[in-house]
Amino acid sequence: MLKLRLSRGGSKKRPVYKVVVADSRFPRDGRFIEKVGFFNPLLPKDKKERVGLEAERIKYWLGQGAKPTTRVARILGENDLIPMPAAGNNPNKAVPKKERNKKEEDGSEAPKAPAAEAAPAAEAPKEEAPKAEAAPAAEAPKEEAPAEEKK
């Protein structure tokens, strides 16, 4: 699977990244297919030299099925090459305990509504059950009557 991702360069505590197209099985800083840009996180966000992208090549690789990582998707979104991804949709990122508890509480509220829907469904069989009981009761005397006649 092809990925658009960052490959780290630079020295210790002075990172500079290349935006590359690579097979997902290749190491992060290893072999890649093509370099399509760079990213320097140490420069201020308003500097033009912070990000450099080859838009045509990136669009080509996206058309070939390459998937950007979350960080690269954000960089591409900021440069209007793809729609800006929604914040907080990274399945690989750890969720803080407080947020996890909130989600569990939200999750506990969601089943309450289907349980309320299930209650009317449970009431419907109760209405049918007396009808079913009434029918065997009517049939029971008919069965007993022939048995009494035999005596």
Rank of each mutant, 00 (worst) to 15 (best):
K142C: 01
K3Q: 13
P141I: 11
G52F: 07
E139V: 08
A119E: 08
P85Y: 07
A137D: 06
L76K: 01
E144H: 11
V36A: 00
V21K: 03
K47Q: 06
K47F: 10
P96D: 03
A87D: 08
L76I: 04
P141W: 14
V16G: 06
A129K: 13
E34L: 01
S108K: 15
K112Y: 09
A135F: 13
P85H: 00
Y17S: 04
E117D: 13
F39Q: 00
G37M: 08
A137W: 01
L53A: 02
P146F: 15
E148W: 13
P44T: 01
D106T: 15
L43Y: 08
D106L: 15
P83Q: 00
A135M: 02
L81K: 02
E105W: 15
P41A: 02
E78M: 03
A137H: 01
V20T: 06
V51K: 06
S11M: 12
G52T: 01
R100E: 13
A94P: 09
E99P: 04
A86Y: 02
A116D: 13
E127R: 13
S24Q: 13
Q64E: 13
P136Q: 14
Y17P: 00
V95M: 07
A94D: 00
E127V: 13
P111R: 07
K3V: 07
R5N: 10
N101G: 10
K142I: 00
K67W: 04
R50W: 08
K102I: 01
F38K: 09
P83R: 02
A135N: 08
K3E: 11
I82A: 04
E49P: 02
K3L: 14
E54L: 14
A124L: 12
G65Y: 02
S7G: 06
E49K: 04
E143H: 15
L62N: 02
F32Y: 09
R25Q: 13
K13R: 14
K18V: 11
K97V: 10
A121C: 03
R8A: 12
A145G: 12
K102F: 10
K67V: 11
E128D: 04
P141K: 14
K18I: 08
R25A: 10
A73E: 01
E54Y: 12
P15L: 05
S108M: 14
R71M: 10
A55D: 11
A73H: 05
Y17L: 07
Y60H: 14
L53P: 01
N101Q: 15
K126H: 11
G10N: 05
L62V: 02
R25G: 09
G52D: 02
I58Y: 09
E127P: 06
F32D: 02
S24N: 10
R74D: 05
I33K: 10
K142R: 08
A119K: 14
